[in-house]
């Protein structure tokens, strides 16, 4: 019998759909934001918050909680939607995204938003922050795990590789990175801007256990997180092949929706495609 039941998979798919609808609505209402990279990251984030992470929404600063750091901070609408659906703050609050006085900043602010573990937005820093959290866990002999989602474009950043080198040197098997490999960055396809291949070999060479999966297939996502947890003596990176804009036909693979909100017509179309009410 497979470890992950059809029921669980169906529930995660349902949560992911809810997150997608939330984030499209949030970005539409805000009039700005990053739908493409939020949609590509959604399934992995849904799997984390509705199955993998040991967190307590009633006690967001519980010391033994698992930590998630969204290094690609611009995808935070997906994170906020997952946190709200998980009960960290009221779902109605999602509609305050990017508005003055809101706890939901345009990029994650750990001081404002319950459940947000690190302030990110300037690319390339989140994996290092994750190392710090993982080292603290090691020093305190705590068994919680640290997950860091890195954007595809963040593989351009020197600091990502400084961190990659250090994490394996410190043998941080409590650390798991996920590369949201949507093959795109702001200016266009990664292979045209700054080619990353052979990406898996690079991470392997830096001492990581590398798992390559379809980042929109929950069976593969869950299996990869299980595997990552069983790896000892080194960190694991899950290279999740994803589609930028996943779930909304005209945003899929479209460079134009990296950092642009849908207009009214696009919003209505997107909501229909996601099975929601515009």
């Amino acid at each position: 019998m497979p470890k992950h039941s059809q029921e669980l998979i169906a529930r995660l798919e349902d949560e992911a759909l809810k997150i997608r609808r939330h984030l499209i609505r949030m970005i539409y209402q805000a009039g700005s934001g990053h739908p493409g990279g939020s949609l590509s990251a959604t399934d992995v984030i849904a799997a984390l918050y509705f199955h993998v992470l040991n967190v307590d929404p009633k006690n967001p600063s519980w010391e033994d909680r698992d930590r998630f750091v969204l290094s690609k901070g611009h995808a935070c609408p997906a994170w906020y939607a997952a946190l709200a659906e998980r009960g960290f703050f009221p779902i109605e609050e999602l509609d305050t995204l990017r508005k003055i006085g809101s706890r939901l900043q345009g990029h994650p602010d750990m001081r404002k938003t319950p459940g947000v573990e690190a302030s990110t937005g300037s690319e390339g820093q989140g994996l290092s922050v994750g190392i710090g959290i993982a080292l603290a866990a090691m020093l305190d002999r705590r068994s919680h795990r640290v997950y860091v989602m890195v954007g595809d474009g963040e593989n351009d950043c020197g600091q990502t590789w400084e961190a990659a080198m250090a994490a394996s040197f410190y043998k941080l098997d409590n650390l798991c990175a996920i590369v949201d490999r949507n093959l795109m960055q702001l200016d266009g396809p990664t292979k045209h801007i700054m080619s990353l291949e052979p990406l898996a070999d690079k991470w392997k060479a830096f001492g990581w256990k590398v798992l390559e999966i379809d980042g929109h297939n929950f069976k593969e996502i869950l299996k990869a997180f299980d595997k990552a947890e069983s790896v000892k003596g080194k960190p694991t990176v899950i290279i999740a092949r994803t589609l930028k804009g996943k779930g909304v036909s005209f945003m899929e693979g479209a460079v134009g929706f990296h950092g642009k909100a849908p207009n009214e017509e696009e919003y209505e179309q997107a909501m229909i495609e996601l099975g929601g009410e515009p």
């Binding site: 820093q125 710090g132 959290i133 603290a136 400084e162 961190a163 250090a166």
Partner: peptide, 20 residues
């Protein structure tokens, strides 16, 4: 951390976020 000051500062942040 070696000659990797960027990494050092962000690692410091992670450690501090965990109470160090």
């Amino acid at each position: 951390v070696g000659i990797a000051e960027q990494n050092m500062m962000s690692i410091a942040a992670g450690l501090a976020a965990s109470g160090k």
